[in-house]
């Protein structure tokens, strides 16, 4: 494959990854890295470098749309960013010291866990009151099932903060947005309404990724000829996905996508284990 063919193939593949990632809400990175590694034979360090850049493009590119429809809570987001950015720097540091095989195996397990999380039910049981949530001005409102605005408060702030450090480490180590873990921290642990959690997570993903991107750049993980088609492809794919989202049957699509990710995860773990990556 020469450079032109390689660029076109990665552009097409990245477009598909971005499209599926945004339609299912799992993010482009989770399928992009396995695709580059398993299908195109790219070293995992270059793959996570290109993926991290595309994560920033998707998060920043869709910010306006998310704010308009969603109910992102910028104070919660900003507070937890302290955790994710510090974690991301730690993760990028780990990535420079972890052998390719190790990264592949961790990646596989994170993929499996993300799929598992995406099938969890969300019960929006609103937390009525928490003094720390008041002190940190994290309370907000969101539209309840009856359409009226409902007040919510935030629980387990330190637990959520700790989990966010973990989300940051995974983002920096694997070059993904780790949106699934961020939503887990906000939705399951801090009991923030699901809609607020997902939109706030989108805001946080780009900032988290930017914290490790500088380290990736300086370490030479970001190869221009690979990063360019990936970044453009994922961005176009995710923008198309955001438009299609309203019309398509997300449930069955998510099932199909999850099966694909399940097998990619197994293959990543297997290849990492036998040292084929």
């Amino acid at each position: 494959m020469n450079q032109l063919e390689f660029s076109l193939f990665t552009l097409g593949g990245s477009l598909l990854a971005g499209l599926l990632g945004s339609l299912t809400g799992l993010g482009g990175g989770v399928v992009l890295v396995p695709m580059l590694v398993l299908l195109f034979g790219v070293d995992i360090h270059y793959a996570i470098g290109a993926s991290l850049i595309s994560v920033i493009a998707t998060s920043s590119g869709s910010a306006a749309a998310y704010v308009r429809e969603g109910y992102s809570n910028i104070r919660i987001g900003m507070f937890l960013e302290v955790a994710t950015t510090l974690g991301a720097i730690g993760g990028a540091w780990l990535a420079t010291r972890t052998p390719t095989r190790g990264i592949a195996i961790v990646f596989g397990f994170v993929l499996l866990y993300s799929v598992y999380l995406s099938f969890q039910r969300h019960d929006d049981e609103v937390v009525a009151h928490n003094p720390w949530s008041d002190r940190l001005k994290m309370n907000g409102t969101f539209p309840g099932p009856d359409g009226n605005l409902q007040q919510y408060s935030v629980k387990h702030i330190s637990g959520g903060f700790g989990t966010m450090v973990g989300a940051g480490v995974l983002s920096g180590l694997l070059g993904i947005g780790s949106g699934a873990v961020k939503v887990l921290a906000m939705d399951h642990i801090m009991r923030i309404p699901f809609k607020v959690s997902t939109t706030t997570s989108n805001f946080m993903i780009g900032v988290t990724a930017a914290a490790s991107a500088g380290i990736y750049l300086r370490r030479g993980y970001i190869d221009p000829a690979l990063a360019a088609p990936v970044m453009i492809g994922v961005l176009i794919g995710s923008l198309i996905g955001a438009r299609l989202l309203v019309k398509s049957n997300v449930k069955s699509l998510r099932l199909v996508f999850s099966v694909v990710i399940f097998f990619l995860a197994i293959e990543m773990i297997y290849n990492g284990w036998v040292g084929k990556v």
């Binding site: 020469n2 032109l4 034979g41 070293d43 270059y46 370490r219 690979l226 360019a228 088609p229």
Partner: peptide
């Protein structure tokens, strides 16, 4: 940048199999 790169190096054979950090 990508366009200029492809004009110059369309037929070059890229190698991403082994990581050796960019220039």
């Amino acid at each position: 940048g990508l366009g200029l790169l492809l004009i110059d190096h369309a037929t070059a054979i890229p190698n991403y199999h082994v990581f050796h950090s960019v220039s």
